[in-house]
């Protein structure tokens, strides 16, 4: 174990090309999917948190259900849709980073919506009533509401990124964990461990854990700003 960690650190410091490729694919997949999820999920979370409409509770129940979607089920769905017999086969997206991003987006959006909705629903009524009382219009009220949740948006993005970077089930099914193409840290760890190449697996594990630690520190800092 100790030797494996020593070798892994040496591998990281050596700037191994395969390791760098895996990190770059992971970064592309995680950053893209978390940012796209944020772009789609934040307005939905804002709307559901601030507005009261028929079916809102049912929507929240559905969203919570989607939050619990097993990644492999999501992967299976995308596999069926984009495989050689699926309706979207002509797009030829299976085993590409693009479809990995799409699958991740579907998995992460409910998380983003829920995270934003719970925060917004706590403050929206008070913000709206105060702004209305000051004679402010809807546009300015919406801007104020968004300004009030800027730290929450940062915290939500970090959580989305952490979820994306640690996911393995869906990305391995639709990406295929192809070396130099769609292999990300989590799939590579599985792959190299199965092959008995513990050094690369441990190196990736160390990087993944370090990133997870960093993200958690950042989330804590941002959440402290929210509570201050």
């Amino acid at each position: 174990m100790y030797t494996a960690i020593q070798k892994a650190i040496a591998l990281i410091l050596s700037g191994d090309r395969e390791l760098i490729d895996i990190l770059l694919v992971t970064a592309r997949m995680s950053i893209s999917s978390s940012v796209i999820s944020l772009i789609i999920g934040v307005p939905i979370g804002l709307f559901v948190g601030a507005a009261r409409f028929p079916g809102r509770k049912a929507f929240l129940v559905l969203n919570r259900t989607l939050m619990g979607t097993p990644p492999v089920v999501c992967g299976l769905l995308f596999y069926m849709l984009f495989s050689g017999v699926g309706p979207f086969r002509r797009l030829k997206l299976l085993f590409t980073v693009t479809i990995m991003i799409l699958a991740q987006v579907v998995l992460i959006i409910p998380l983003v919506v829920s995270h934003m909705e719970s925060y917004i629903s706590d403050i929206a009524a008070s913000v709206k009533e105060t702004a209305m009382g000051m004679g402010l219009g809807r546009g300015k009220t919406l801007l104020l509401l968004m300004n009030e949740c800027r730290y929450q948006i940062c915290s939500t993005w970090l959580l989305a990124f952490a979820r994306a970077i640690a996911e393995v089930g869906a990305v391995s099914m639709v990406g295929g964990a192809i070396a130099w193409k769609t292999n990300v840290m989590t799939t590579a760890i599985m792959q190299y461990t199965n092959r008995g190449n513990f050094t690369l697996g441990v190196a990736l594990g160390l990087i993944l854990m370090s990133l997870s630690l960093l993200v958690n520190i950042l989330v804590t800092v941002v959440q402290r700003r929210i509570s201050e």
Partner: peptide, 21 residues
């Protein structure tokens, strides 16, 4: 104009809060 029972203090300086109105 209306000041609710629990008015919301917007996360900005006190002076900016006034000049929002």
């Amino acid at each position: 104009g209306y000041m609710p029972q629990r008015p919301y203090p917007f996360r900005m300086s006190m002076e900016k809060n006034l000049r929002l109105a």
